[in-house]
Design a binder for these strands. Structure first.
Length: 518
DNA sequence: ATAGGGTTAG
């Protein structure tokens, strides 16, 4: 018998569906060979998936290898992709290592699959090694491989490498551009994302547009967001869930609640993301009643929906209510995350609830298994500072496990201003200066903090300080030299000519956009 | 058989 009979094949496939004990697996395994089913591709693919769910990479690898006279990359690729989707994605890399050291040559499909696993386990070093193998085996010119390398490097915290990949490419397609743009967005480089979009020389598709909408929202570039919206309308794009949500959230982030409301009404599909987004919109503009109403009518609520509501209450000084909803959320069995704690700590801070703030901060570690990040320390410093407890804030900054950043120093500085503790205040100023010229971005941030608080005196003092320290950048802007011309870019604001570039791109691609969303 | 997208806090 060279081929398995159809019923037998079906039985095997069904057996491979369920988790098995080792003994029954051994029996199936021998049946595979004696029946000839090991020649059936569909059975082998199921076998690969099954192995990934139950065996170590090396035993899975060698089992699959046994089924073939020559190593078959296709089967190993399936194994890699199954491990990538599992809860232990780094095992995909282990399979890859076996392939390479065992002489089973990877093919062009292997690299994107194994690189994708690196994104899931933050494997920058592994990605580099794979990159080396890619180069050695001559796959560096493969567009898929190049694109996924941009993506992996960008998401594993190595943005410069992603840029190098992108710059070195001779041919870039829409995915190449979209990869880099989305990497920028994920890393908070929103202006860079928009600048890249303005330089695109291929038509964007809906995936590109989604990233651009996020970037427009986060930079508050309503004009770009609106133009992108216009482009979608002109293309008669049927908005899918993701694009619709991105558009809605762009209006929310640009604080255009009326437009967001209209979008919300018109969206053909809504899910938990849509609801959360509109709540945060109502969160933000002070329409707490509307936010509450939507929240209560939501069919499903996740941690982000609760955080949006609690954060909104906190933002508008309803500290007690925010805490109430927090307790309620915990009672429903949802686990608060780090953002939940930023929301309630800032609620305590704005409402002067010192004792509650201290208690919740302590409970993060004790009861919720969370490690406070610098933002949480920042909230606490702010809370203590506002309550006039400068000494305690000072102790906290001294004992916290990480280096203080400019926001912490900013909170300390305002605490000192009202307390008159000159000794601590001097220490804060000295520490701030130690951040040094490399941290000129920090000064810009600080000057923004001052600016929003109408503290222009502080700003001019800060500028003097920066000049004295040899920090060249003026706060609030950065200078870039291009083709011998010096352009000054305002922080967080697009330059006029950049804006025009983007509108031009939108115009050019008006009729070329590939609407690939159903 | 391989690549890219949305929501929370400050």
């Amino acid at each position: 018998m060279t081929r398995a009979s159809p019923p037998f094949k079906r039985i095997l496939l069904n057996l491979l569906q369920v988790p098995l004990k080792t003994t029954s697996f051994t029996q199936i395994h021998s049946l595979l060979f004696t029946s000839g089913a090991s020649q059936e591709l569909s059975v082998l693919l199921k076998l690969a998936e099954f192995l990934a769910s139950s065996q170590t990479p090396s035993s899975a690898y060698f089992t699959l290898k046994q089924t073939q006279r020559l190593p078959n990359p296709f089967l190993f690729n399936t194994l890699i992709s199954s491990y990538t989707q599992s809860s232990s994605p780094h095992l995909a890399f282990a399979v890859f290592k076996h392939m390479v050291s065992d002489g089973s040559t990877p093919d062009k499909y292997t690299f994107p699959l194994v690189l994708k696993s690196c994104v899931r386990f933050w494997g920058f070093e592994e990605a580099r090694q794979i990159h080396g193998v890619v180069a050695k085996l001559g796959f560096l010119t493969d567009l898929y491989v190049q694109n996924v390398l941009i993506h992996v490097y960008g998401l594993c915290g190595c943005y410069p490498d992603a840029c190098i990949m992108f710059d070195d490419m001779l041919v870039r397609d829409v995915v190449s551009w979209t990869c880099l743009i989305s990497v920028c967005v994920k890393g908070g480089r929103f202006v860079d994302a928009l600048t890249l979009f303005a330089q695109m020389d291929v038509a964007p598709n809906i995936t590109t547009i989604v990233s651009v909408l996020v970037a427009s929202g986060r930079t508050g570039e309503l004009n770009i967001g609106r133009s992108v919206h216009g482009l979608l309308l002109k293309n008669e794009a049927v908005l899918g869930l993701i694009a619709g949500n991105a558009l809605l959230d762009m209006y929310v982030k640009c604080e255009r609640i009326d437009e967001a409301k209209r979008m919300f009404k018109e969206l053909p599909m809504k899910d938990i993301v849509t609801w959360t987004s509109i709540i945060s919109g109502y969160a933000k503009c002070g329409c707490l009643d509307m936010a509450l109403e939507i929240f209560e009518n939501m069919p499903i609520k996740n941690i982000r929906s609760w955080n949006a509501l609690i954060g909104g209450l906190a933002m508008h000084g309803h500290g007690k209510e925010a805490l109430g909803y927090f307790e309620w959320m915990v009672r429903t069995g949802l686990k608060p995350n780090d953002v939940s704690f930023i929301a309630i700590l800032s609620a305590c801070s704005h409402s002067g609830l010192v004792e509650e703030g201290r208690r919740h901060f302590a409970s993060m570690i004790k009861f919720h298994d969370l490690v406070p990040k610098i933002e949480h320390y920042g909230c606490m410093v702010d809370l203590l500072g506002r309550a006039g407890l400068v000494e305690e804030a000072y102790e906290l900054v001294k004992t916290m496990p990480m280096k203080a950043d400019v926001l912490i120093w900013g909170a300390m500085l305002s605490a000192c201003r009202t307390s008159g503790k000159t000794e601590i205040s001097q220490w804060v100023r000295d520490s701030l200066l130690e951040l040094g010229p490399s941290d000129s971005g920090a000064f810009v941030l600080l000057s923004n903090i001052y600016a929003t608080n109408d503290r222009w005196g502080d700003i001019s003092r800060l500028r003097r300080l920066m000049r004295k320290k040899g920090i060249k950048k003026e706060p609030g802007s950065s200078i870039i030299e291009l083709d011998g011309w010096v352009h000054e870019f305002l922080v967080g604001v697009m330059e006029h000519h950049q804006m025009e570039d983007i509108l031009m791109v939108l115009y050019i691609f008006e009729k070329q956009m590939q609407i690939d969303e159903q």
